[in-house]
């Protein structure tokens, strides 16, 4: 049972991790619209406003030609040839652009089709999607599959845990069967007879919940640095400790349910109640 709850806890934490990883990555998807160099800033700002008014759009960032040049220069500070080429050109070769972020990655096609309308076509030089989309979809799939596997594992282990608990309780029932017989003869109600076994099952659940939380402590501290390297934004250590109460609550709930189910089955089958 402890093992089941442990897996269950891992599943929760894994889901939290996967969700935040996806959220971080989603934030990195955007569409960039590059304008012809002769388009005026006013026109671009007009487009920006109209895009911002779309319900699918979360955020539109305007990057002026100067700004683009600046960041281009910054990125290629060390590269002499590029710097020389820029000087030779004399004027700014870069186009202004709008970076568009959608509220939901699935809305990008809508935004793209909006950008393809006629009015904009003669202003726009090109539209690029960042390559992230593909990776993100893949990651989402992996996370989903792993999540499903975790759920399946939890279910399978739950069934095993119920059987193990069931057996323990059946053994107790068996070893106290004379006592149960006497209780029956004296006229003990079923509740009175089965109560202690149900309590036994519930206690197993509670014990397993606390054990699984204890097991998680070393695992978290081992895993936290690795997660930090992969995703600096995610702090599972912090997540674990700040949600300690909530997680313990989940574990207790799940454990008590498992324990109760097992003991009720045991009592039903072997006390014929």
């Amino acid at each position: 049972m402890t093992l089941v709850l442990f897996v269950f806890l891992n599943l929760i934490i894994f889901n939290v991790l996967a969700d935040s990883a996806l959220a971080i990555l989603r934030d990195k998807i955007d569409i960039s619209v590059y304008f012809q160099t002769n388009v005026s800033e006013d026109d671009i700002l007009k487009v920006q406003r109209s895009l911002a008014s779309l319900s699918e759009v979360k955020d539109v960032e305007y990057i002026s030609r100067d700004l683009a040049l600046q960041s281009f220069k910054d990125r290629h500070k060390e590269d002499q040839t590029i710097n020389q080429a820029l000087e030779v050109l004399g004027e700014n070769p870069l186009s202004a652009s709008l970076n568009i972020k959608a509220k939901d990655p699935r809305d990008y096609p809508v935004i793209v089709s909006y950008l393809n309308n006629e009015n904009l076509n003669n202003l726009v030089d090109q539209v690029t999607y960042s390559q992230n989309q593909l990776i993100i979809n893949r990651l989402a799939n992996i996370a989903e599959t792993a999540g499903k596997g975790g759920v399946a594992l939890t279910v399978i282990l739950s069934v095993i845990a119920v059987f193990v608990t069931l057996n323990t309780i059946i053994l107790t029932i068996y070893s106290t069967r004379d006592e149960i017989g006497v209780m029956r003869l004296v006229g003990a109600a079923n509740k009175f007879i089965s109560g202690p076994y149900i309590i036994q099952g519930v206690l197993y659940g509670i014990l397993a919940a606390f054990l699984s939380m204890l097991l998680m402590v070393p695992l978290i501290s081992v895993a936290a640095p690795y997660v930090k390297v992969l995703m600096p934004e995610v702090n599972i250590n912090g997540y674990f400790y700040s949600n300690l109460l909530k997680l313990t609550g989940y574990q207790l709930g799940f454990g008590v349910v498992l324990g109760t189910v097992s003991s009720i089955i045991a009592v039903r089958r072997y006390l014929k109640i």
């Binding site: 029956r184 004296v186 006229g187 003990a188 109600a189 079923n190 109640i273």
Partner: peptide, 10 residues
């Protein structure tokens, strides 16, 4: 029924 037995046994 089984649940009515205790009343009888008493």
């Amino acid at each position: 029924k089984p649940q009515e037995m205790p009343a009888l046994r008493r």
